[in-house]
């Protein structure tokens, strides 16, 4: 394993130190491993808290700032943060209008956020509403599984809901909007290589040179099937087809098309994939209203990509276009 680190045990703490130095506009609580906006809670504004395992940067800490999150909890690599962190984040962003927890649908994340919400309620603290993001069409959604994973839609949701919270909308409305975004987004991913968790020291799975994984998660979970390596044109089909057959994307105001890199795939290749995805959407009669292409939700050093489509209306597009000032996303300000 070659990694630009000191000690595998210190990766998250060391990275947070660097992040704090690079972004003096943020406030990093190193003890609780929570990234806050520097200016503190705004009275009357709903606080947005997210978090998850580390290794997905810029998600979530890189999405803290005006127009997006108020705080993000950083867990160990690929491990959900603990309830104490979420309680500290919730208390730290409470401006009297309640707090929305944005949770990706993984067993650990859901349980830890649930325990945190119980702790906050027990201390009669802020009103907390939780929205769980589950958009990965690679996972069969049924009563008998943990349900779909939360992946790319999370990034789009944090941006859109962040804009709505910034407008001063009440908690119930902000939570409804978050659920609406989750319902309208679908994702599918693929990997060319595994990733290497620093503490494990070797790749999570073996993937021969001439093979790729389709239906990959963002924690090095192997995908649903392994197929021979294929050109980007065919990969785009394998990702877009299951998304389009899961939800109708025609009509409305078109989609936000998010082509995301998983860490080791260069932007050059992401644009190649985006062109192929756009051609398929055109053929299917789905209009692209906005695009986002880049590594925004990574899986350490995994090579590969995910495609997310979010069905939009005028309101979602307006909120998407609203100013955002975070380390990871920044426009209109």
């Amino acid at each position: 394993m070659k990694k630009l680190i000191n000690d595998p045990a210190d990766v998250v703490a060391d990275a947070l130190r660097g992040m704090a130095l690079a972004h003096p506009e943020l406030r990093v609580d190193h003890e609780n491993r929570v990234v806050f906006r520097g200016e503190g809670p705004r009275q009357g504004k709903v606080g947005l808290v997210s978090g998850g395992g580390s290794g997905h940067e810029p998600m979530h800490g890189g999405f803290v700032g005006r127009g997006m999150l108020d705080a993000a909890c950083a867990g160990e690599v690929f491990t959900s943060p603990v309830p104490d962190q979420m309680v500290a984040a919730t208390q730290g962003v409470d401006g009297g209008a309640g707090v929305l927890h944005i949770v990706k649908n993984y067993t650990g994340d859901v349980m830890n956020f649930e325990m945190a919400a119980e702790l906050v309620a027990a201390e009669s603290g802020a009103e907390v509403v939780t929205v769980v993001v589950d958009d990965d069409v690679a996972v069969t959604d049924s009563l008998y599984t943990a349900g779909r994973r939360g992946v790319g839609t999370t990034v789009l949701l944090e941006k859109i809901v962040g804009a709505a919270a910034e407008e001063g909308r009440p908690l119930a409305e902000v939570a409804d909007l978050a659920r609406r975004v989750d319902d309208a987004g679908r994702s599918m991913g693929m990997a060319l290589t595994s990733c290497t968790v620093p503490a494990a020291g070797k790749p999570t799975f073996d993937l021969p040179e001439d093979q790729m994984e389709i239906g990959i998660g963002i924690h090095g979970e192997p995908g649903r099937r392994r197929v021979p390596l294929a050109p980007a044109r065919e990969v785009a089909e394998m990702l877009v087809e299951p998304i389009l057959s899961d939800l109708a994307f025609t009509g409305g105001e078109g989609v936000i098309c998010f082509v995301n890199g998983l860490g080791a795939t260069p932007l050059l290749e992401l644009y190649v994939l985006h062109a192929e995805v756009a051609a398929l959407l055109d053929k299917a009669g789905v209009g692209i209203a906005r695009s986002l292409v880049g590594p925004y939700m990574t899986s350490l050093d995994m090579a590969g990509a995910t495609v997310t489509l979010l069905r939009c209306d005028d309101e979602l597009l307006r909120l998407w276009d609203a100013p955002v000032v975070t380390p990871g996303l920044r426009w209109g300000a």
């Binding site: 395992g53 491990t79 959900s80 309830p83 830890n112």
Partner: peptide
Amino acid sequence: LVSKVGGASGPL
């Protein structure tokens, strides 16, 4: 364990 472990095994 709840405070230190995280993931699914911490709460469980």
